[in-house]
């Protein structure tokens, strides 16, 4: 574990990992096909990456690493993805993504699964 991570974040991460393993079926994709999961990760890296960085360390948009998201509720993050953030360049993705796909992306981001995509 990252030694510079503040204790609250570490706790949150552990909590997240636990939740993730408990909800393993949901995390494993549920009704989202394996192919679609790859597409979502590709979208995240290449297209979200235009603003948030290929490695998600941030750019014009905020960094999206697990440590940056740990204290933010899933529902709020899904809302941001689907509705966008008015007054900023973050667009609403509801025209291109389903809510369950946004939820899946949030889980992937929070657990750091995003880096597993093969470029």
């Amino acid at each position: 574990m990252n030694s510079r991570m503040p204790p609250w974040a570490a706790k949150a991460l552990v909590a997240v990992s636990l939740t993730a393993s408990l909800a393993n079926t949901a995390w494993a994709g549920g009704s989202i096909s394996a192919q679609r999961q790859q597409e979502l990760l590709y979208l995240l890296q290449q297209d979200c990456g235009s603003c948030h960085g290929l490695t998600l360390k941030g750019g014009l948009g905020s960094p999206l690493l697990p440590i940056n998201l740990a204290d933010k509720p899933d529902a709020a993050l899904v809302e941001v993805i689907m509705q966008g953030l008015p007054g900023t360049p973050m667009p609403p993705w509801r025209f291109l993504l389903e809510e369950k796909e946004a939820a899946w992306l949030v889980r992937a981001l929070k657990t750091g699964q995003t880096m597993k995509v093969s470029p």
Partner: peptide, 8 residues
Amino acid sequence: EKLPVYKM
């Protein structure tokens, strides 16, 4: 209203 901008 602007369309959603997915790339600057």
